[in-house]
Amino acid sequence: MLQEIFAFEFMRNALFAALLSSVACGIIGTYVVVKKIGFISGGIAHTAFGGIGLGYYLGINPLLGVIPFSLAAALAIGLLSKKAKVAEDTAIGTFWAVGMAVGVICIGLKPGYAPDLFSYLFGNILTVPAFDLWMIMLLDLLIIAVVWLLSKEFLAISFDEEYAAVSGLKTTALYLLMLCLIALTVVVMVRVVGIVMVIALLTIPAAIARMLSHSLPGMMIRAVVLSAFFSICGLWLSCLLDIASGATIILVAGFCFLLAHSWRFVRLLPGVLPG
C-alpha cells in the first residue's frame, strides 16, 4: 500500500514536508519548552495570520507575506515585554488578536472567495507545492546554522538569563533572535498543521523528549524524531480514514503526550503509594 501512496507526487511532497518541518520544529521546540515561551510562540503564530491576509491581498505566495509579518511580531512582542514595561501576556494577547484582525480585513478587501484559507489556519500537508518545500528546506538550514553557531549562548539564556547577562552576553538581542527563529519555524509549520495548531507541534515533541534527555542537543534530536513520527503517523491515518491531515497529526501528538505522562505516572506510582 505504501508504494501506491508514494506513487503520487503530492504524497511524496507531503512526506518531505513532514520530515523537513520536523527538523525546525524539534530544534526550536526544545527552546520553547525549556524556556517556557509557549504562549509567546502561540502569539507569534497567530499574528502571522496578518501576513497570510496581506499575501492574499497583494496576490503573492502567502508564505512570503508570513515571513516579514511573523518576524515583526516576534521583535515587537519581545521588545514590548522586555523594554517598554508592558506585561508580557498583555503584549502577546494584543498582537495575537490584532494580527488575526489584519488578516481578516485583508482577505475581506480582496474580491472573491479565498478557497484555501482554511489550509493556512488548520494546515493541509497534502497540498504543499514544490516551491514551499524548497523554502522550508532553506529555513531549516538557516535555523540549524544559527543554532549551531549560538548553541552555548542559547543554552545560557534558556537556563538562566541573569547568569548569561553577568557573563557578558547581550541577552536581549539573543532573546529577540531566538524569537525570530520561532517566527521562521511558524512559517515552516503553516503548511503542515496551520497557524492555529503550530503551538502543539512546537511543544509536544520537545516536552516528551525532555523526559528522556540529559542535554539540549539530545533533547533536540529526540524531539525531531518524535515530531517526524507524529507527522507521518498523522498523515497516514488521515489518508486511511479520509480526515483532515493537520488535525490528525495534532491528535496523534496529543495522544502520545498523554501516553507518555501516564507511563511516567504509573512508573512513579509505587513511590507514591504507602507500603
Binding site: 517556557k36 537556563f159 538562566d160 541573569e162 525532555r210 534527555s213 540529559h214 539540549l216 533533547m219
Partner: peptide, 8 residues
C-alpha cells in the same frame, strides 16, 4: 532561580 527539571 532556575528550573531544576532543565535537561543539563
Amino acid at each position: 532561580f532556575f528550573d531544576r527539571e532543565f535537561p543539563i
